[in-house]
Design a protein around this nucleic acid. Structure first.
Lengths: 196, 196
DNA sequence: AATAAATACTAATAAGCGTTAGTTTTGCAA
DNA sequence: TTGCAAAACTAACGCTTATTAGTATTTATT
């Protein structure tokens, strides 16, 4: 009968969302039960329903929350007057920063979106495709202005997105490098390669 | 009461494994039921137990099968007398080829290993860490022989492994590029960058 | 054709799931 | 201190799950 302890700035639902995100990352969405989630707050599972609509709604909020963050930043970048190199560099850095600062949510969004309900899943994929297309456009811009080698833009984006998205493996190395060093290394690597 | 149709070369268990792999990739391990798996072969779920030990054992075989493939190739590379550049290049190509030719298994291994039972999970992580360490060693070798820039080896490996591992997104582009073009682009990108 | 082995079936079990209903407790406002 | 809304509780539902037991059927061998 313990009440959910709310943090300084955050409703009870926020606490649930945060704990759900952590569990979904560690165990997977399907492998996490509401009873288990409730336990992290010392309450019983049905009590959750005073704050949430359903288990599915939790995943929905997490996935679309992350999608929104990335889309908004992309729109910011697209609207700027920077060079394609700088745009790309900033996007890579943003991905790294998001993983550093919002690890659970980003991870869950990347791994569990398949468990979204049919309708949400379609919408999610549309947003992701749009993001990817915007990315490709930046590469195209760079190629046209002869800033980039003429590699295949879609493969380039695939490579970059895979590299930064896959930074979830970072978690085990998190204390070994500062985020600054990590950003520097990855941007260097993905833009200029590793061969002398 | 239909009997499982075995392919030209393959026991009934192999058919089950293959179908399981496909389903686990599409829906996730936890989200796939044995009834569903059985249905792909027009039999009832309990009949599966004439061929398999448990659902968990299926995942186990898939994950450790993939791990074995990568470990074996890594040992081959390590034992060779090639330059670090060639070793790295070959490893990257191997990853791409595996994803192309063994997509379901590689995907499931990358995504569902968390659902392994405690004991198997520990073993799996040990093997993965060993693989990663071998990768780092190759980078170190290249740096020592002044073939590579002095980027942080662990971050470099993280970047490369993330990039190739993340090629699962490839699935939606699979018909757009040949594997040769893909390999060329990615190796070029990851070794020499994209900036002119 | 008879026998044995492999492999399918049906029926059932125990456990766990998300969720609902109905009730009690808590904490704040008057 | 009383009253009301928020949020907790217990009990239970209906469903799905992996798996087992026991039995029938198919296939291969003699």
């Amino acid at each position: 009968m313990a009440k959910i302890k709310t943090l300084a700035n955050g409703s009870k639902k926020d606490v649930i969302l945060k704990n759900a995100s952590a569990l979904f990352r560690k165990k997977g969405f399907k492998a996490t039960s509401l009873r288990e989630l409730a336990e992290t707050m010392d309450i019983e599972a049905p009590s959750l329903y005073n704050h949430i609509d359903s288990k599915a709604a939790l995943l929905e909020e997490i996935c679309f929350g992350v999608a929104k963050d990335f889309t908004e930043y992309m729109n910011l970048i697209i609207g700027s007057k920077e060079s394609a190199v700088d745009k790309l560099s900033k996007l890579i850095r943003f991905h790294i920063q998001k993983i550093y600062t919002d690890f659970d949510n980003v991870f869950v969004s990347n791994h569990e979106w398949k468990q979204l309900s049919k309708k949400q899943l379609v919408e999610f994929l549309i947003q992701r495709k749009a993001y990817e297309n915007a990315f490709v456009e930046i590469i195209n811009e760079g190629v046209k202005k002869k800033l980039f080698k003429t590699l295949h833009p879609q493969i380039t984006v695939l490579t970059i997105l895979s590299a930064v998205r896959g930074l979830e493996f970072l978690h085990s190395h998190k204390n070994e490098f500062s985020i600054e060093i990590l950003e520097e290394n990855m941007v260097q690597h993905l833009l200029t390669g590793i061969i002398k």
